[in-house]
Structures are given as structure tokens and as C-alpha cells.
């Protein structure tokens, strides 16, 4: 059986080299990785280990220097800009560390924004946004703008936005970095809940031990290479 149909993400021999002036700076070297559907994977490692670079490559935000990356069985390293945008829009949800939301839109409008890009009708958008915001515990706060929400609430909105279109993969880059431990724990519980209830594959990066403890699989990177890959169940 083709592995790519069983796995949400498959990386083979992925390398990424950045150029700083004339100097080549390797960020990832020969990374091989398979992430099965509905997995809940944590990428850990020190700063500069390549966690964010790997997330960016899997998310189609950046291109590998060499190697193959497949998401849902489709080679994204061969896609053009438009195809990558379409993939991100339809198949991948993102939660970033900060500046996750559009500041002039309310929580509900931020969630609706992606659905509008997808061409979902206004009535359906409103209904789905209300439902998902209720699910992430933000009922009653739908019309607040990001500036009127706490850091944890903002991340919940980001999670709601990432999940509302029912993507096959959600990528979260240090989602708890700016949160206190209690709020971080609540957020991770939410992500686990979404992972289970919505059958979505989650890949997130973190430094945080508490966050790592939530993962079912912990991948450790150092100097752009995977040095450890432990399934924790």
C-alpha cells in the first residue's frame, strides 16, 4: 500500500539551506519523516534546531532545497505558488506563536475570513463560526476584537480558525510560547480535544515540557537533523 495515502505527511531526504549573503546556512539536513493520519506530534529542540523550518516546509510556506514532501498524498515540493496557496486554504490549518489574528476583525470574523476565501456562503460561515467558537469556549466573546481578548483567548480563536474548515492537518508553531502555564495547559487540552473529535492530524513545535507531555509522539531535532523520535502511547 502506498504510504502516502495512510500518512498525512511524508518527508523524504528533506534539506533546507538558507543563503545569508554568500554563506550557506543549513537549517535542515536529510530529514525523513512520516506522520500518520490523526497523529498528535510534537517537534522539540533548542532554538535554531529547525523546528519552525520543518513546519514551514510541511505547511507549504517555504520550499525545500532538496527532498520530497507529501501532504495527503500530494507532492507539495512540486507545486507552484497558486497550488500551495490552495493547499494551505483547503487542507492545512495554522496556529502561530503570535500575531495570529487580523486585529481589525472580531473573533467571529477572523474565523469566517478563511471560509470566505474558500467561498463558503455567508449564512453557513456564520453558523460554523458560532459553533466552533462555542466549542473552543468563546461563546459570548464572538464580537470582540483580538485587542479585547486575552492571549489564551486569542490562541483559541486561532485554533477555531484553523479547525473550522476541517483540514486534514493543523500546524502550530510554539502555540503556547506567550501563555502562562495554566492557559497553555488549557490550550493543549483543547488541541487534543480537536485532534480526537475532528480527526485532524496535529503537528506542533515547542520548547515547553508541559506541552511535550501532551503529545503522542515526540520528535527531537538538533542542528537540522532528527535525533530522536519517540512514540509516547
Amino acid at each position: 500500500m502506498d504510504q502516502s495515502t495512510e500518512h498525512t505527511v511524508v518527508c523524504r531526504g528533506v534539506s533546507k539551506v538558507y543563503r545569508q549573503d554568500a554563506v550557506a546556512v543549513p537549517a535542515l539536513t536529510d530529514v525523513a519523516l512520516e506522520i500518520p493520519k490523526q497523529d498528535f506530534v510534537c517537534l522539540s529542540g533548542p532554538s535554531g534546531s529547525g523546528k519552525t523550518t520543518l513546519l514551514n516546509l510541511i505547511g507549504g510556506l517555504d520550499r525545500p532545497t532538496s527532498g520530497e514532501i507529501s501532504v495527503d498524498g500530494r507532492r507539495i515540493d512540486l507545486m507552484d505558488k497558486g497550488e500551495l496557496a490552495e493547499l494551505r486554504l483547503r487542507r492545512i490549518g495554522f496556529v502561530f506563536q503570535a500575531y495570529n489574528l487580523i486585529p481589525v476583525l472580531s473573533a467571529r470574523e477572523n474565523v469566517e475570513f478563511v471560509m470566505q476565501l474558500q467561498g463558503v456562503s455567508a449564512a453557513e460561515r456564520a453558523a460554523r463560526a458560532r459553533a466552533i467558537l462555542k466549542e473552543v469556549g468563546l461563546e459570548g466573546l464572538e464580537d470582540r476584537r483580538p485587542g479585547e481578548l486575552s492571549g489564551g483567548q486569542q490562541q483559541r480563536v486561532a485554533v477555531a480558525r484553523a479547525i473550522v474548515s476541517e483540514p486534514s492537518l493543523v500546524l502550530a508553531d510554539e502555540p503556547t510560547a506567550n501563555l502562562d502555564s495554566k492557559t497553555a495547559e488549557n490550550l493543549m487540552q483543547l488541541l487534543r480535544h480537536m485532534n480526537t473529535e475532528h480527526s485532524v492530524t496535529f503537528v506542533f513545535s515547542t520548547h515547553d515540557k508541559l506541552v511535550m507531555d501532551f503529545s503522542r509522539r515526540l520528535i527531537t531535532l538538533r542542528d537540522g537533523r532528527i535525533v530522536d523520535d519517540v512514540r509516547r502511547e
Binding site: A85, E86, F96, I102, Q118
Partner: peptide, 9 residues
């Protein structure tokens, strides 16, 4: 950049 990441053209 955020909008582009979310899939906006």
C-alpha cells in the same frame, strides 16, 4: 504574510 499563510492569494 498571515493572510498569505492562511491561503489568501
Amino acid at each position: 504574510g498571515l493572510m498569505l499563510a492562511l491561503g489568501a492569494r
